[in-house]
Amino acid sequence: MDLATFWFIVIALFWLGYLFLEGFDFGVGMLLPVLARDETERRVMINTIGPVWDGNEVWLIVAAGAMFAAFPGWYASLFSTAYLPLLLLLLALIGRGVAFEYRGKVNTARWRSVWDRVIMIGSWVPPLMVGLVLSANVLGLPLNEFGDRVGSPLVILRWETLVGALAVVGFSLVHGAAFIALKTDGEIRHRARRLAVRLAPVALAPLVVLLLLVQLREGSAWSWVPLVLALLAAVGAVGFLLRGREGWGFASFGVVVAASMVTLFGALYPNVIPSTLDTVYSLTVHNASSSPYTLTVMSWMAAFGAPAVLIYQAWTYWVFRKRIATHHIPPVHAP
């Protein structure tokens, strides 16, 4: 396997890490007004992701940074083509990050409800945009011979990419609900579990449609395997949740997203962005990649850096492994 292909896989893994980790913390934010009945329950929900959401978000930064370093052409064309969706993504992430930090800093209901709204919007918009951009990437963009977009800023809005947007949103919803069921105790835990089970068929439907669509258009024989695995894992997740096995249910949703990413990136390879204008303009792992020297440097760095990240992030989850219940929430203390 050549280095460019290796980096294609690494970047797919970074995106997978991002969707897996921030998927559930988006879900928590999206479900904030649905699952929590009062202020204490809202704080229970927010504190399930309190220590970890920032570390989860770095997966997006490292995915983008790795694209820039390993495939400058891919990074440049995708980011400039998806200008407006990425702008919305950035604005949402800005608001959301600040909201978590600032929400409890003034002790009035009005202050908190403003930031709660920011958290909610800031959690709905990013998965929509990530889904839109990633599915548009897999299905192709109107790129000319320079790798620049031809057409209006909204050219990536097609029914297929809207399905892609809903796919990531739907996944984040059930993944987030399963996470809350796993990380909380008391009434909210049961509410979250019931919601995950009831939502799953509807919420995961767009993902299934997207996978089938990509498989039928671009897929090969082997890529049916991850697709079927994703479907089985989704059914399994619901089964586990029905039996009250929240940990297994949450992990099964993880398998769903992992298998889906294998299908999607598998269908994309060896392109990194297919051009919908003319296949000769398509960016591939070979014509969009950096030099072998740069890729070698990056590989050494990733070989040491990535395992370290996994270890200390896993440790964080271990430190904060206990379930949170309403009676754990300390009184608000703000000047």
């Binding site: 490292v62 990056m298 850096g305």
Partner: peptide
């Protein structure tokens, strides 16, 4: 990109992950 991306990616992987975690 061949030059400039590497330090940015290193920043994310080596430094920024440590910071936020």
């Amino acid at each position: 990109g061949d030059v400039f991306g590497a330090p940015l990616a290193m920043e994310a992987l080596v430094a920024f992950f440590v910071e936020s975690t």
